[in-house]
Design a protein around this nucleic acid. Sequence first.
RNA 1: UGGGGCGUGGCCAAGUGGUAAGGCAACGGGUUUUGGUCCCGUGAUGCGUAGGUUCGAAUCCUGCCGCCCCAGCCA
Length: 620
Amino acid sequence: MAEPNVNSNPPEQGDRSALDRQDFLRELVRQDLSDGRITEVVTRFPPEPNGYLHIGHAKAICINFGIARRFGGRCNLRMDDTNPAKEDVEYVDSITADIGWLIAGWADHCLGLKPVGALPERRIVDGRQDFYIAPAAHTDAPAHTGTAPEPFYASDYFEALYEFALQLIRKGKAYVCDHTPEEVDQMRGAPDRPGRESLYRNRSVAENLDLFERMRVGEFPDEARTLRAKIDMSAPNVWLRDPVLYRIRHTAHHHTGDEWCIYPMYDFAHGLSDYVEGITHSLCSLEFEVHRPLYEWILEALDLPRVHPRQREFARLNVTYTVMSKRKLLRLVEEGHVRSWDDPRLPTLSGMRRRGYPAEAIRDFCDRVGVAKRDNLVQLELLEHCVREDLNRHAPRVMAILRPLRLVIENYPDGQVEEMEAINNPEDASAGTRRVPFSRVLYIEKDDFREVPPPKYHRLSPGVEVRLRYAYLITCTGVSKDPNTGEVVEVRAVYDPATRGGDAPDGRRVKSTIHWVSADHAVGAEVRLYDTLFAVENPDNVPEGQDFIQGLNPDSLEVLHDCKLEPSLATATPGARYQFERLGYFCADAEDSRPGAPVFNRTVTLKDTWARIEKRRGKN
RNA sequence: UGGGGCGUGGCCAAGUGGUAAGGCAACGGGUUUUGGUCCCGUGAUGCGUAGGUUCGAAUCCUGCCGCCCCAGCCA
């Protein structure tokens, strides 16, 4: 029976790189299609709602949605929620929101849509029992616009899963075991030593059926019994040594409430959930490779009528200067090393979104990182490159002073204000221009002035002429210092009225152009500068006896309170991204920005050749 | 020490018997009213290692070395 192909949208034109990318997963899918093993491609992304999504998940999302998209299929977002003790709706909400954001405008057209309230349909195919949940037709659903998609839930299949378990028992392939967890543990043996068979392994089908049904209705306490697969206690692969399929947990579930007190284990639930949804390719990370024989055993033992899903594994993503494990991220949040799950220093999707990383850049990164099976540690620089490349194209330019230094134009009339025309985005002519007020007293960046300039320093210093961007050529005439500290508190200069806009009629050139903000018109702002969360490249690789926490970078956050922005930024909308010229890309904080009192996060710096020169000099 | 995987330039990664793609990083140079962007150029005689097969090997065979995963009633 052919299932409806609800989505046959081909990938967009002009998408060559993603289209042609060659990796072993796409190769396999291509092969299955040309062999006629399958006629459509259905994948899934199956997070357990027990934590927040991070860049590592983004890779899995891009692979699963990307392949569905590439072959005109669909990808289901499924909550793998089979362990009520660890899960919560808080997480399903954040996960769906993060995914909606990440795939918006890219893979929303191949997002598997669940018919509202639908459960798997029970039916008989070729005399064999089957369950299938048909996707909603795409045309019936409102266009996905980046809002949280409605996920599928493994827990919606508990009834079907229970029926499958019954069937396994009837076939003599599963049994109820009364051993304690400790006994099961001991009897499993070791990788190089076979295990011992359960004393309950040869119960009759009738007794197993009776016991399992009584497990379901709640006759037994937690841990009293389990349902186990009858496979091989001496199998070299320990996952084949009669793995537990169901356990008793008198615990309320975030999605099914108190309807159940037995819950299926991952290995039993996952493959069958894939099957129920008509998944053709179940793409997961490498640590599940040893589970694959069990995944296949379950599907085969049940003699299921439709085509079986195929599990294939790829290496998970690691990025330098950060950690990806749920356990470690949780510690960072709980111990207060970061403020929250969406702290802009975290590799969580919510953190990166708050920091200003465009979803498109994260997807591009996942694409460039490739798909393979070897362990990897990708340099942060590649991610930052992707972010800069996207922002360079799209972010409007603006002038902002992070560390203000007063500059007085001595020969500029006091009280006069001129509106200078500035280009919004040199990469995008359609972005137009804006007017920026100029006056006698300005702020410039402290870094842009040196009383005694080091070699190769092109910026302002006494006697030197530079350009004020979009304004005038000025020449530094002197400084004022704090009488106590000797610190330069004000720079004085004269301007050449003939150079309005920045070009000299006589054609003379200056070595540097610096940015500025008019003191009278400046908007005060808080700006948060971020450095890597960890000071070490690979925080997971800690020396003996050390805690990964010790690898933290004490200077990962610097808050600047007295920044001066050009007036157009007074009402920056939360989440809006800009390039502060010559400094970097910044994003109006979505939580803390207020009209008239914006707060900005530095997303990433611009590449800084001068900083590199200085750094090199420091080393020599 | 049992089983399952993986080793290609600093980091990713193509390559599937015909003589080492591409990206990031780095380093030179050009353009530039952002020390940004953009453009041009530079890098493995070598594919963990030692043998073998072949006219020819990163690709096939054998041994060795290294790294990762697996003994949850977690996923």
